[in-house]
């Protein structure tokens, strides 16, 4: 009984402390929990690998900010790297002001790592990859892109005229985009599904935070989205696929976090079990009295 009382009265700060340790320790002493690739992740990977011809275009939507960066940033990196490794062109687009900074950071990182590792196949900003300027309007922007992408944005995120850029060659609208992967933790994913996929038939893949992942499963089943990376785990699976292919050099941000993630989950499961036991025991006691 003392144990039940202890659980019921436990100061939350002890839980925070143990959780922090659960996460820090695996970083220092990696455990290496096994990881399986799930089907929604594999289908995005396979689509980029097999279904897009060389010179094709992958559009990546960076609609997140630092608050969900931990989950979505690694996704942006892996998808951009994968596309470059197949000699595809990569366009970043953002519907929120904060997304521009995120996308620029990814572009800079990916280009640096790629060019360091591939001296004979250098990639250039404006030729192989770029960011479309931020334009307000969200759904209006998505719809306008279906008519004319260059006219929608005029400029890239660095102030260059889009019509002068080699990366934009022969790109008019969604018909010239082979795949769109939307990275967001908010309902903006639906905007892409409703307008770009629904109206223009654009192939949309989703990269989202784990919070929203459950919500978007129904769009996978209805085939409105071709695949999904859900949370850090999704990013880690993709990193693994890329390393197997031999084209990923950067720090595997997501993969190294997986041990920490798993140990935190084990801690939570224990908490939930203990909490429930305490709840039912104390309920029974109250009822008995």
């Amino acid at each position: 009984m003392r144990f039940i009382n202890f659980i019921n009265k436990l100061d939350k700060r002890w839980i925070y402390l143990v959780l922090a340790l659960c996460i820090i320790i695996p970083f220092l002493f990696p455990i290496g929990f096994p990881m399986k690739t799930t089907a929604p992740v594999k289908s995005i990977y396979d689509f980029i690998e097999d279904s897009i011809p060389e010179g094709g275009v992958v559009l990546i939507g960076a609609d997140y900010d630092p608050s969900t960066m931990a989950e979505l940033h690694p996704m942006a990196k892996v998808i951009a790297t994968h596309a470059l490794s197949n000699n595809l062109r990569v366009l970043f687009v953002t519907l929120y002001p904060q997304g521009a900074g995120m996308a620029q950071d990814v572009i800079e990182n990916v280009l640096r790592e790629w060019n360091n590792s591939n001296p004979d196949n250098q990639k250039e900003l404006g030729k192989d990859i770029t960011l479309l300027a931020y334009v307000p309007g969200v759904s209006a922007v998505v719809l306008k892109m279906g008519e004319d992408i260059i006219e929608t944005f005029n400029e890239d995120g660095y102030g260059n005229k889009l019509s002068d850029l080699e990366v934009m060659k022969e790109i008019k609208n969604y018909n010239d985009i082979d795949l769109m992967v939307e990275l967001a933790g908010s309902a903006v994913v639906l905007t892409w599904l409703i307008y770009a996929n629904g109206r223009y038939g654009l192939n949309v893949g989703i990269g989202t935070t784990a919070v929203s992942a459950a919500e978007y499963y129904s769009y996978l089943q209805s085939k409105q989205a071709i695949g999904m990376l859900g949370g850090l785990k999704g990013a880690a699976e993709y990193e693994n696929l890329l390393s197997k292919k031999g084209v990923y050099w950067g720090r595997k941000d997501a993969t190294v976090g997986m041990d920490a993630q798993s140990s935190a989950h084990i801690f939570f499961i224990i908490l939930i079990v203990l909490g429930n036991i305490a709840y039912f025991v104390s309920k029974k006691q109250k009822g008995g009295r």
């Binding site: 004319d148 260059i150 006219e151 019509s163 008019k172 018909n175």
Partner: peptide, 8 residues
């Protein structure tokens, strides 16, 4: 093939 071009 489709003959469609930007309005510009």
């Amino acid at each position: 093939v489709r003959d469609v071009n930007s309005e510009e």
